[in-house]
Design a protein around this nucleic acid. Structure first.
Lengths: 229, 229
DNA sequence: CCATGCTTGACACTCAGTGACACAAGCGGC
DNA sequence: GCCGCTTGTGTCACTGAGTGTCAAGCATGG
């Protein structure tokens, strides 16, 4: 792969069913075609997560994943933009609505409050499905190639949060350091929590990420709100 | 490529001359072989930066870069672990001594002060060589593949800063959120400054990064020092 | 002069990722 | 019922990154 100027997989291009969600039933798609797509997608992620967790990222080829899922290599790339994406989209999908969530917060709310809520969304989801999410998070954090991709996604989140914050506060995202700085701080907290969660008690993940993020924001809050007292 | 468990290029494996520095003469290596190595390395980075800045990351092949520099593709990969690394190492090399710098700060210093100095090092270097550094930074920030690699490097910095901070404060980097959180905040400031610097006045880069980072840390300081008053 | 070690180029190979084309459903109109 | 149309898929061929191997080339030290 490489830069992917504006490419990406041809995932349901009509009423975009959103990032492929893996196992959870959730709001099932309606059309037959959509359900078929969904089926193949989950089959692929399932196969990928199992194989990769078992043998490591490098020891598994895309061909293997595809064949295990019962499709061709070519079809794999019609669902995911890269080998890394099968794993990362699992996490990244959860963060996609951060911006929406931030935009939905009441206008007068302090930045620290609003950001805390936005960032909490994916973390509480993780916490609620720890059995599925924890192995994935661990795999990502300890595989350089996956980490790089994940951070790339995160950079997009940061961009989104920056824009949204700038809009909320009536500031210029270019000329003013604060919006990007605040977004970065929120994501730093996110990362710290993710690390702590994945490392704590190498057995079954320790404290609830929802609680940890609150702890982190207690430290951040004074700085986050210092610009709008 | 992919995960690179512990691989990397066979860069001077004897008394490792450190990351290949590009043009600056600096403390020239002594041995003849070392100087030859250095020469090839700078030739490669020079060729790469020129071609990539001109035609974009995807439109240039490693073969081209190598041939332009007068060596073979195989030799390219003996100097750089990946196509991205030619560009990124330029920046990443500067950040490598962050940890050393942090460790060298007086023990009693407030975390915000110590971190500010550590993070300032690469930024002031950038500011001092803006004519060379700015195009590279812009290229990295707007090329997803390069950004991903750069963030991967930064993750290593964060790890280093985390360890060092934990040591300084006598805390446990695993159980305690604060060290990683503080390191993340410092790097968030770093990123914000880098963005601001690269975007400000699309002409020639605006305010001095050294000044910008001070501005950012003015916001961060209360949070950074809140744990050790 | 010869042995040793380091660097390089040439070659072959794996694997990620893409483009092109042909083929098989599912579906609406007539 | 048949005809198009769209959509998803497999096959094939191809580019380009990255690696292993081997056989020179060229410095050094004895």
């Amino acid at each position: 792969m490489s830069t992917r100027p504006e490419a990406g997989p041809d995932l349901g291009q009509a009423p975009d069913p959103g990032p492929v969600r893996t196992p959870g039933p959730g709001p099932a798609p309606v059309s037959l075609a959509q359900r078929k797509r969904q089926l193949v997608a989950t089959e692929l992620t399932e196969a990928a997560l199992q194989l990769l967790a078992l043998r490591g990222f490098d020891a598994v080829t895309v061909d293997e994943i595809a064949t295990t899922a019962g499709v061709s290599k070519r079809t794999f790339f019609r669902y995911f933009a890269s080998k890394e994406d099968v794993v990362v989209q699992f996490l990244a999908g959860m963060g996609a609505d951060m911006r929406t969530d931030l935009a939905a917060r009441p206008a007068g709310e302090r930045p620290s409050e609003a950001l805390l809520h936005a960032v909490s969304v994916p973390l509480t989801i993780c916490g609620d499905h720890a059995d599925r999410a924890l192995p994935v998070v661990r795999l990502i954090l300890r595989t350089p190639a996956l980490l790089a991709r994940f951070l790339e996604h995160q950079a997009r989140w940061r961009e989104d949060l920056t824009q949204e914050l700038a809009a909320r506060l009536g500031r210029d995202a270019r000329a003013d350091l604060y919006p990007r700085l605040a977004a970065g701080m929120a994501l730093a907290a996110f990362d710290a929590v993710l690390h702590r969660w994945s490392e704590g008690e190498e057995a079954g993940g320790s404290a609830d990420p929802g609680a940890l993020i609150g702890e982190a924001f207690a430290v951040l809050a004074p700085a986050l709100d210092s610009v709008t007292p």
